[in-house]
Design a protein around this nucleic acid. Structure first.
Lengths: 348, 348
DNA sequence: TTGAAAGCGTTACCAA
DNA sequence: TTGGTAACGCTTTCAA
């Protein structure tokens, strides 16, 4: 057994069976003051002056009891919270996106928001919205995998949500939308391939679920670019396994493609290797382009060409959220936050 | 500009300036019943029988107002919540770990917990614990990057937290610990290399911050295995860049190593390529082993040998959390949830 | 079958 | 300088 569970071993188990959690009333009692005074002292309320000895007594009492204020009670009283709800992704996405989400979480934290990840599987958009609304978040930032319909937005707004922001999808009614231009990724890839003389372009469409929201618009973008010059685009379903790549590579001659956009670097690497193993010359017979500019793509031979995506920064999105919450005018309007450009290496 | 911000475009901006969020009292008023009745109807309280016409009136009133119950008020009244707090990682970790966290979040959700990600940067363990305690979570699951000291555990327990679970670290006082056996990863890698005749083993130690919690124990495990048979282990600091790998490869002759454990597949791939570019024969002169069994590792030539880590499943950890919360006896005791074994391919 | 009221832990107003 | 009190939104016991 390479893993173990340890019970608390300090001999204090059940020393205090269901001991009550101390409240400000307990602190007040111990310090011999009123609850109001406790609140004043602990919140450093400047409008009220409390004598130093009293402050000291209160603080000591709080310390002794291990008193910690109750956030829910506080925000109930205050009438608002600083909770930002992030609908959880159904499936782990790529490294770029994970990094983005992590950045976002930290940036929000720095702005003193509490981030709640909330998964809502098998709920339709409106039921999901109702579930989210129960938490009375001040903002909802949907990262696109979860659809936010106009009706859902209405439910949220009516429950007091100040800002509904969707990122990664096309704008949906009533939300502030941060549209990550996925079609552009496919478009610049295709344009690059066309510019280097290719005319029959395969576009990998991952079979793994949860990726359609990225892959479909990328495919569409490639189609746009190809349509403009009479080039052909062929969708290529591909699972992230060596078998699937091998099968696709075996069909390569009959497909008659002279280029392929691999959705991202990982799928592109997988396919490129399969093509090479099947005797297809890269980039001679077929050019290959990935996306994300992963370091690993530079390790293969030929080095993988890629579309570098400059993802919007978590900090900027956090600023947008904060602005929307405060009702401040759009803090990022007009700025280009997502840019994609081809980095040509050796595979194209 | 490849990205745009859209304002709500339905012409309804500020249609209802600061309209109050409906409460159960509003519903009661509209339906012509008491708040109690509203609560009974909406919660399907079985102990009380409400006439069908009344139920209907209440439901319609709720519907019309867009009423959604207030979770904080509810749990304040109930005296407990179902919130699980997950201290946020400071830095994005590998794909395996992201997947694990995602699984965990979903598994907890399925058990009807609400997952709150909470970052606490620059806070010492006790202050962080106090911040967490304000939220009155029912459980805290530390994924290791954030240290949970015994004092922190005490603060949490006193605030009503039922279970403190730390995963990935050595057991810390008073918590249920799920120890992911990182040393074992290094040990099996080293044992494999030793078994195939290698004696001077380099172990990559990533320079990227936030990875020490994994890399240090892996290095230690390798040392243990080597020490047992008089083999040598040399730590190799390496940044995740081609330059760093190139510099390390350039020093290879003077290092005199006949094998290297690359920390994980990504670092191993990076280093293996640099070695090959520097003219080092792999696996002839130097054997290379990674970890994580990434698909991409099979694309290089020679195919990368790796340590396959069967990570504990999110669902199992969620079950442990649930068991700890319910006070049920340890639900996973004695089971081996983390296992590591070498998958030999061509690079060793 | 329904309603009145208490209480969860806070904070803010007003009075002392 | 301090304390009493009401109110935030909800559930639940008790009484009608």
């Amino acid at each position: 057994m390479s893993q173990s569970i340890e019970q608390p071993a300090d001999g204090t188990r059940d020393r205090t069976p269901a001991r009550a959690v101390p409240t400000s009333a307990d602190v007040a009692r111990l310090a011999g003051v009123s609850r109001a005074t406790v609140s004043y002292v602990l919140n450093n309320t400047s409008a009220v002056r409390i004598s130093e000895p009293t402050r000291k007594r209160v603080r000591e009492a709080a310390q002794e009891l291990g008193y910690v204020p109750h956030a829910a009670a506080r925000s109930l009283r205050a009438g608002h919270s600083r909770m930002v709800l992030l609908p959880a992704a159904h499936v782990p996405v790529g490294p770029l996106y994970s990094r983005f989400l992590n950045d976002l979480q930290w940036a929000l934290r720095r702005l003193d928001y509490t981030v709640v990840q909330y998964g809502s599987i098998g709920l339709d958009p409106e039921d999901a919205a109702r579930a989210w609304a129960e938490l009375r978040p001040v903002a909802v930032v949907s990262t696109g995998e979860v659809e936010v319909t106009p009706a859902a937005v209405d439910i949220l707004k009516r429950s007091g949500v100040k800002a509904v922001i969707s990122v990664g999808t096309r704008p949906s009614g009533g939300t502030h939308s941060l549209v990550l231009d996925q079609p552009r990724v496919g478009r610049v890839a295709a344009e690059h391939l066309i510019a280097t003389g290719r005319r029959r372009i395969g576009v990998v469409v991952p079979e793994e679920p949860g990726l359609e929201m990225f892959s479909a618009p990328r495919l569409e973008g490639a189609r746009t670019a190809a349509g403009a010059v009479g080039a052909t685009v062929v969708p290529l379903p591909l699972a992230y396994t060596e078998e699937s790549a091998g099968e696709l590579a075996a069909r390569w001659p009959e497909l008659g493609l002279d280029a392929v956009f691999g959705y991202n670097d990982e799928y592109a690497m997988l396919l490129m290797r399969a093509l090479q193993d099947a005797g297809v010359d890269v980039p001679g017979a077929t050019a290959v382009v990935g996306a994300d500019d992963l370091l690993l793509g530079r390790l293969l031979r030929p080095r993988l060409s890629t579309v570098r995506i400059d993802m919007v920064l978590g900090g900027e999105l956090a600023a947008l959220v904060d602005g929307a919450v405060n009702g401040t005018a759009d803090p990022v309007g007009g700025r280009s936050l997502l840019d994609s450009r081809v980095i040509r290496r050796e595979s194209s």
